[in-house]
Amino acid sequence: MEDNLPLFDNYINQTLTPEEEAEFDKRLKSDKSFREEFRIYLFTLRGIIMEAEGDNMEFAYAVKNLSQEDFEKAIFRNPDIERFTLPSDYFSPLPSVRADYSSAIENDVTGDDDVRFSSVDEVFFKDSNLELNAIPSPVDSNMPVPDSSEEITEHVSIKTSKRRIRERFLWISSIAALFIAGLFTIISVARNGDNKVDDVIAYYNQWATTSPRGGFDDAPDLSSMKGKELNESLNNLRSTYDNPEMSLQDREMAGFSLAIYYVKKHNRKEAKEILNEMIVKFADDDEFTATCREVLKMLD
């Protein structure tokens, strides 16, 4: 079966010679199969055109009837909505920083404000007669049109390069400053969060150690001590904890008090060290080592 598509295309585009067109018309009248094929071809083309027109009208009505807010949402003006990204291989190599004619425009070398545009407003709304058919071409502007690439370079000013470099430096340093500030904020917030957790752990366990319902009736309340008194108490606790001749309960009390003291001082490292030590030292006391493990879990 012959392929009549190219012939059909030429016919509707009126690119056939008069003889060829006459032959085509004759065949349409006499060849039913040929006619049917052409009919379906035309039917399909009409469908393509109608579909395209319908889609265009639909788009236009949708654009016109959307509120400003919904329209901006639809075109991803809302920063919360994920924006499109191209695959990395779409990016062309970074251009070298060189002055060119467009830079001359930015620096208003030509002195013509109409040439520059910083927003669509300047292009579309300045000229109230602007339509699709009347889009000004850059060639229509008052700008001189260079003849060669050398002439383009000649139009450049050194000030343009320096300004660009300064702008880029400002951008980079602003971003770096923001990053550092952000990092410190995060660290500070994290620290604050940790400190609050430490206070809760200490408070809970202080109660556990000093309460009559807890195991350590003689546990000192280090939080109320200062200076020399505090140092003496800490030393006593340390020596009690380290002395193997002291009773198990006294050593456990001393070690635990020390650990909680360090937690209150937000010295998690020391606190964990003592707790881990006690888990090993007092392994036979399941209840006590379980308590130590619980506190360790809270500190992690």
Partner: peptide
């Protein structure tokens, strides 16, 4: 995005036809 915004303005101002 500027193009789309311009389209909206031009349509509303009658500067461009719907069947473009």
């Amino acid at each position: 995005q500027d193009v789309f915004i311009a389209i909206r303005e031009n349509l509303r101002n009658g500067k461009v036809k719907e069947n473009t």
